[in-house]
Nucleic acid binder design. Structure first.
Length: 201
DNA sequence: CGTCTTTGACCAGCGC
DNA sequence: GCGCTGGTCAAAGACG
């Protein structure tokens, strides 16, 4: 807000672009997304992805067909608010072995914002906070679907400010709100909205 | 008019 | 027991 005010604004806007219709495109190019994160993905999380089915975009991250994910999802629903994860540091390691099974957490690192914003679902930003160890603020998003408690955190990579790290928590128990089967005809509403916002400071 | 973003403050868990 | 940090909520404003 201070040191990164301008940059933050831009970055925030980029993510505020919610998910225009490009999602389909991404889903279509699941390999691309995969490669992006196959190359830049965080090592410890690689196991998480495997545990979840390989690619968050194609497996449980979006489709919500991951049984394990559903399990963890239900458990999350029962959690009261503001319950900090235990052993957050360990989670990185634990996630690679056990947590990934009980708590579906998908960490995706992408070098382009479009990879993050266009996941096919509508997200509502409910918070932003600067976390220790990272000069860039972390944005908190929640799925706008009332019956969907999926959340995601988006933050910049420390190493590469141009890279964004998106952490998905939970599984979508609904279908994609954006149904643009035709990649050439993305959701006009969302598309325009995001474009306009992205264009605006 | 409806929806979403932004910002500040509060709460709870964890570490020392 | 205290302090710190992270995560979430709520209100107001802005935009399409």
């Amino acid at each position: 807000m201070v040191a990164d005010g301008g940059a933050q604004d831009v970055w925030s806007n980029n993510h505020s672009d919610r998910n225009d219709g490009r999602t389909e495109n991404q889903s279509d190019t699941g390999l691309a997304a995969n490669s992006v994160y196959g190359v830049k993905a965080l090592q410890p999380n690689d196991s998480i992805l495997n545990a979840c089915g390989g690619s968050p975009e194609n497996s449980c991250g979006l489709s919500g067909e991951c049984e394990q994910g559903s399990k963890g999802f239900e458990a999350e629903e029962d959690e009261p608010r503001s319950k900090r994860r235990r052993n957050e540091n360990q989670s990185n390691e634990a996630a690679a072995s056990e947590e990934a099974v009980t708590e579906p957490r998908i960490v995706l690192q992408s070098s382009t914002d479009s990879e993050i914003i266009g996941d096919g679902f509508r997200w509502r930003k409910y918070g932003q906070k600067v976390v220790k160890g990272n000069p860039y603020p972390r944005s908190y998003y929640r799925c706008t679907n009332v019956k969907c408690n999926v959340r995601k955190h988006v933050e910049r990579a420390i190493d590469d400010p141009r890279a964004f790290v998106t952490t998905y928590e939970g599984k979508h128990n609904h279908e994609m709100p954006i149904k643009n089967t035709n990649p050439n005809v993305p959701s006009e509403k969302d598309s325009q909205a995001s474009l306009s916002k992205a264009d605006k400071p």
